[in-house]
Design a protein around this nucleic acid. Structure first.
Lengths: 192, 192
DNA sequence: CCAGTGTGAGACAAAGATGTCTCACATGGG
DNA sequence: CCCATGTGAGACATCTTTGTCTCACACTGG
């Protein structure tokens, strides 16, 4: 954040490279550095100049995904109003990062080394707290644990993103389908 | 199928090898053939005698997972009784294969070549038909498409299996958590 | 115009995974 | 007892990917 501008216009957009890398790796998690570079429209040498190696690239993707999730959590104001509305806002805000999140979710090798997981643990705690708040306010069922609801949200975001890229569901329906399915299960059904 | 028996007791159990391979690859999708072999308690040479290569191993895992899913579908009798009960029976029957299914679900590279996907397309059709039947009978909501419900079921099975291996949810709760979340969203809520 | 910076293309060695081979050993059946 | 079968261990070449390097080129700013 110290010097935002590039002196030379030829400089590649680091974030855009990460975007295309995420899009490619979501589809083909074993993609080569060369494939990643070509997908980003740059050469392997340039890719290597910006990310020391494959590990560094994945770490950068992890940091980006985490930052986007935290930004979405921030924007969604999880502590305001009914928990159901907070979940809806959260899914809407997190939608652009769903593809990246799906890749990171399957890249469970990251979690073997326990380094960056502090950030994910904090995110998990935020989401779990949201679902617990919904339970305590009487909005959500109590037989589905907050931890499971958090995991289920991740799973639905991943499968939703994948279904969108496969063309099985329309991109515009993404938020609606996920929220309705998740909340329909999490919301306590009013007995007739 | 020509000669079922082994003449020598030293023969490895092909299915057990596939089981351990699935368990390992679910956790670490980039595991080496050597790691797979050691996880199965055999040598790399023996593993290579039974599966010509890594591709053949993954294909065998795909065939196994597909066979188990089809068996679960068969046992669950999806066409009998209310669709909700059919979904519950399906998840219960498919639970043992959830880990393997999670691995195959993320191994989307398989679907680039369009060879084995005929079997998966048939399975998808069965599940989609079940959800459609639930909609037509008035049990399920109509704003969630059968295709999305099928994808969501896959996603929940995957995240559920992963949560179990991570110790975040108890194995005994697996079926209940998935079915309740999925059906709670798929079942039409009775308006008060 | 000219220096500086970033990039693309390609060569190169190193590391890792894979596929194949040989040899020794153990077990079970004839 | 002895042979056949299946296995484990290891060596080996091959292939792919990776990481690093050099060189030439394009564009920008002074």
């Amino acid at each position: 954040m110290s010097h935002m501008g590039y002196r030379c216009l030829m400089a590649v957009d680091r974030e855009q490279v990460l975007r295309s890398a995420a899009a490619l790796l979501t589809r083909k998690s074993t993609a080569t550095m060369d494939e990643v570079a070509r997908a980003a429209g740059i050469s392997r040498a340039t890719l290597h100049r910006h990310f020391a190696g494959r590990d560094a690239l994945v770490r950068a993707l992890e940091a980006l995904g985490l930052a986007e999730c935290e930004a979405a959590v921030e924007t969604a104001r999880l502590d305001d109003g009914p928990a159901a509305g907070a979940v809806r806002r959260l899914v809407r805000e997190i939608e652009p990062a769903a593809g990246l999140l799906a890749f990171l979710y399957t890249e469970n090798q990251l979690f073997e080394g326990e380094e960056q997981n502090e950030g994910w643990a904090r995110l998990d705690a935020r989401l779990t707290a949201l679902f617990r708040r919904g339970q305590e306010s009487g909005e959500f069922r109590i037989d589905l644990t907050p931890v499971w609801l958090t995991e289920a949200l991740y799973g639905l975001l991943a499968s939703g993103a994948w279904a969108v890229t496969e063309g099985r569901v329309a991109r515009n329906d993404f938020t609606h389908l996920i929220v309705e399915l998740l909340l329909g299960g999490a919301l306590r059904r009013e007995e007739s």
